[in-house]
């Protein structure tokens, strides 16, 4: 199984693996997100079980895991919507705090504000941050063009299809130029064409802005297409079952044999859920 381009590191035999060396040799400032012994209970429900891993600055990480394993919970912990039961999360070496860090979150559920038009939804975060008006105008124009929302800018979310509504939420996050972008199954509701397009847009944004991206998905092909590293989570109580490094050149091709090999490998791992 192990191909040269497929460095999978089972936690069990991680001890001597190359990722350990890499982690040792990485200076601290290269780490964007550090998750240390993170444990979360909801009452008696044990969701996250002593999870530890790092995400490097500028890295693109995809997280896959069974439904209900705590992927959304993990992001909610990172944005402090929930607090950890034990352990902690650090962004730039500081305990995570949306007040200090420029992060943006694309929620899984529809979260566009129904009382704002498309354009005003896009402006919302920027206005909260009190950016200069011309900066806001420019960014919003760019996002509207990028997401093809020109004709919809004065519509209200309820007048749009689910996938258009999701585009608002994605655009709202992109417009922030975040240095940490969290996306929770953002493309679940979309038709294939738009999904492919928006996958490329996230990659472009990531490459242009050097944003660190944490992308949650249940679509393995999507994960392999985008990620530098895939974290495979187990069922509850959840641990990181395995990390798969994907270092295929970009743009990636779905029919590339290496791509197929990684995809099959991840799929194989997931069958054990």
């Amino acid at each position: 199984m192990p191909r040269t381009d497929l460095r999978h590191n089972d936690q069990a035999r991680q001890g001597a693996s190359s990722s350990m060396e890499r982690r040792m040799s990485t200076p601290d400032s290269d780490i964007k997100v550090e998750v240390r012994n993170l444990t979360k209970y909801f009452g008696r429900l044990h969701v996250l079980d002593d999870i530890s891993f790092n995400i490097k600055r500028g890295e693109f990480v995809c997280v896959v895991g069974p439904t209900g394993c705590g992927k959304t919970t993990f992001l909610n912990l990172l944005t402090r919507i929930y607090s950890p039961t034990r352990g902690d999360l650090f962004i730039d070496g500081e305990s995570a705090d949306p007040k200090k860090h420029n992060l943006a979150f694309v929620f899984q559920e529809p979260s566009a504000f129904p009382w704002l038009t498309v354009e005003k939804n896009l402006r919302f975060g920027l206005e909260i941050k009190k950016l200069a008006k011309d900066v806001i105008d420019e960014r919003v124009e760019m996002i509207i063009k990028m997401l093809g929302l020109q004709d919809l800018r004065d519509r209200y979310p309820h007048q749009l299809s689910v996938s258009s509504e999701q585009r608002i939420i994605i655009g709202r996050a992109f417009a922030m130029h975040p240095d940490l972008l969290l996306m929770d199954e953002p493309y679940g509701q979309m038709d294939v064409k738009l999904r492919f397009f928006l996958e490329d847009e996230v990659i472009r944004l990531w490459q242009e802005l050097g944003t660190t991206v944490v992308f949650i998905t249940h679509n393995i092909e999507e994960a392999v297409y985008m990620a530098q590293r895939i974290l495979i989570l187990s069922t509850k109580p959840t641990t990181v079952k395995e990390e798969v490094v994907v270092d295929l050149p970009r743009p990636r091709r779905f029919d590339d044999p290496d791509f197929v090999a990684i995809r099959n490998y991840v799929t194989e791992k997931i069958k054990w859920w």
Partner: peptide
Amino acid sequence: IYLDVGTMFNANARQKLFKIAIP
């Protein structure tokens, strides 16, 4: 979820009241 969006964008208490809750 709307208040969570506010938290994520780091809205302060006043912004959450006037820009999210009341609308």
